[in-house]
Every structure is written in C-alpha cells, then in structure tokens.
C-alpha cells in the first residue's frame, strides 16, 4: 500500500511559530544585541563589545547576589521538601476531612505573589504586625528592616508558608497512587514504619518529588516580587537576589548594556541547572531506579 505523504499540515504550526518569535525569540535576540552596546538614552547606541560581560563575570555585586540566590534556593528546598513529605504523610486518606484538608492546603497557592509579600510585610512589622509586635512583646529583638538574620528569616518563612503546600499536595497525589496491597504485604512482613517509608512510599513518590524539586528550585531561583515587597532587597543588600539586582540595574539605573549581559548570564545559569535537573529526571525514569 502506498502511503500519501502530505506535509501541508505543518503550515498549521506557522501562527504559533510567529507568535513565539514575536513574544520570545526576537526579544531574547534584542537582549543579546543590547548586551554588546551602550546607550545614554535617546535611542543612540554605541558598540561596547564584550566589555559588559567582562564586568559582570568579575563583578563583586553579581557574585554576591548569585551566592545569596543559591543559599536562598538551597535553604527553602531543604525546608520545603522534607516538610511537604511529612505533611502529605499525615494528611487524611479518606472521609470528609480530605476535601477540607485539600482546600486549606491550596489556599496559600491561590494568593498572588505581591499580596503574599504585603501580608508578610505587615505581619512582620514591629509597630502594627502580629508577628513583629508579639515577638517584641515577648522580649525577642525581631526587626526585619534592621537585622540581616531577621530579614532572611522572614523571607524564608514567607516562601515556606507560600509554597510548602505545593510540595505536600504533589506528594499526597503520589502517596494516594500506592495500592493498598503494598501496605498489606509490608504488614505481613512485619516491616517497620521507617522501612515502609524508605522502600514503598519514597520510591513511589520519586516522580512527583523530582517535579516538586524542579518547580521549587526554578521558582525560588527567579523569585522577585515577595522579597521585593517585604524587604526591598535590604537591609543593605542582604536580601538582594539576582532578579532584584537585575531590575535595579536595568530600570533603576537604566544601564541597558550591563543589565542585558547580566540577564544573559542569569539565563544561562538557569538553563544549565534546568537541563541538569531535566536530564537527571528523565534518565532516572528510563532506568526505572
């Protein structure tokens, strides 16, 4: 039988290709184009070559922001992933409590970033905020506008409050998909709670956990709105993460060239890390480990 080859359907893809080119590819090319030039406004550009890239890779300011960014992502992952698993394992498995629990867990996820920032900005204030005022009444010297440790504490707790539910819900979905027979077999074998977790629940949650880690890592690595609203990057530069620094440079100082070089390096780091996560994920799946 002769198959008819007709590739005309590919033209159907054209609109989306044009749309992506207009909204993503050409803007990215524009950033590359700005990164090798300098401007003083009035839309006049001057060739700068690789100067901005040289400045960025040697810049103390960039290194510091990058370091803070890695620490922030590592800290929130180290808290949110185990906490999410713990919550998921203690959520009700059946009955009326399931929908109640799911709705309550989803609430933080529904709140927009800037609103979360505003909530915590007020919550932590020493004069009118419940957390700030209560802590100070109890004799704890807490002030996120003045103390670096307190600022980090607030930003980290805020992220944990906002996003642990996501990890918990993903893990809960993974746990619910384990057939009861596995647990019965474990009971017959006299397996301990730890053994059930280590050899049944954790392997069955691996897929959703990798997605949770990937999502939380990328989101936390790009975080902007919440810390910007709460601390504005301060005190000093203590909570100035990469995106906050980038916006300061691009919009505050209107240094388009250096900001373009900055965003390209930032983009390359995210691209590399996402590729590593993705590759590890898909290859673990293939090996079925």
């Amino acid at each position: 039988m002769n198959k008819t080859w007709n590739n005309k359907a590919w033209w159907m893809v054209l609109p989306v290709v044009l749309l992506v080119a207009f909204s993503a590819v050409i803007p990215l090319m524009t950033v590359v184009n700005y990164s090798v030039q300098d401007t003083f406004g009035n839309n006049q550009f001057f060739w700068a070559g690789l100067q901005w890239f040289e400045e960025i890779v040697n810049s103390e300011r960039f290194h510091a922001a990058l370091g803070r960014q890695f620490i922030f992502s590592a800290v929130i992952l180290a808290i949110e992933i185990p906490l999410g698993i713990l919550i998921a394992m203690n959520m009700p498995k059946k009955g009326w409590a399931v929908p109640v629990c799911l709705v309550l867990m989803s609430l933080p996820l529904l709140i927009p970033w800037n609103v979360v920032g505003t909530i915590w900005q007020i919550f932590g204030r020493v004069d009118i905020g419940l957390l700030g005022a209560a802590a100070n009444k109890l004799g704890i010297d807490y002030n996120y506008t003045r103390d670096i440790g307190d600022a980090w504490f607030t930003v980290v707790i805020m992220d944990v409050w906002h996003w642990t539910s996501l990890v918990a819900l993903l893990c809960y979905a993974g746990l619910q998909s384990i057939p009861e027979a596995y647990y019965q077999a474990a009971r017959i074998d006299g397996a301990s709670g730890w053994a059930v977790f280590r050899y049944i629940q954790l392997p069955k949650m691996r897929g959703v956990l990798l997605i949770a880690v990937l999502l939380r890592f990328m989101d936390s690595f790009m975080i902007y709105t919440e810390p910007f609203v709460v601390t504005g990057g301060g005190p000093g530069n203590a909570t100035t993460f990469l995106s906050i620094d980038l916006v300061k440079m691009a919009i505050g100082q209107f240094d388009l060239g250096p900001a373009a070089a900055f965003s390209l390096v930032y983009f390359l780091i995210i691209l590399l890390l996402s590729w590593v996560f993705y590759t590890v994920m898909t290859n673990l799946d293939k090996q079925g480990r």
Binding site: M29, V32, N33, Y34, V36, T39, N43
Partner: peptide, 13 residues
C-alpha cells in the same frame, strides 16, 4: 534602525 541591530549580532544569530 530603532532596534539598533549590529552586524556582529546578526552574524552570531
């Protein structure tokens, strides 16, 4: 011209 393209970036892409 308002996009300020340069021949170097054009060559790169």
């Amino acid at each position: 011209s308002w996009m300020a393209w340069t021949w170097q970036t054009a060559l790169f892409f």
